[in-house]
Amino acid sequence: MNIFRLFGDLSHLAAIAILLLKIWKTRSCAGVSGKTQLLFAVCFITRYIDLFLHFVSLYNTEKVMKLIYISASVFTCYLIFFKFKATYDGNHDSMRAEFLIVPAAGLACLINTKFDAIEILWTFSIYLEAVAILPQLFLISKTGEAETITSHYLFAQGSYRALYILNWIYRYHYESHVDTIAIVAGVVQTILYCDFFYLYITKVVKGQKIVLPA
């Protein structure tokens, strides 16, 4: 474990917590893409499938973190699609998730480390995570604005994989560890946040709200 991965995981946890708090406190999921949250839940379930297959005692933080990610993302989907369904902005959350799931599944069958079920699921999860934020960014571009708290969520979510890139550089240099598929997908994922990062740094940090040119 290195500092980059530690802060990456903390940033990811913060993102999940910020979103849960925003929905719970405002009792509304306006401005939040339910599809993105569904895709994240699928990512966690397919990536941590080993938790369900051979249940091991929660002997280390990694198992606990995996359970937190899965339960928090499923709970977030419950809040969006059931509890606060009335506030879900369905007609702006209109990016076709199938256009993300099918290519990720196809690519996972073509480019993977080992052609076995668990590995394919893991690879699918990595590819899907890289593009899972697109419905959320699409929704913001359609509504033309993002609540400040939602911007903080996006910043934390984007920073997590950016920090993981630093973690991979560190591990390549000190442990000569390379996980090419995760690295390529992580770079693509982080690039998708670039224009949001620019808006966040230039606007939100100064206390302004993000308003996209409609």
Partner: peptide, 10 residues
Amino acid sequence: GYYKYKHDEL
């Protein structure tokens, strides 16, 4: 030797 490919990251 056989290297068990394991993803050790979240």
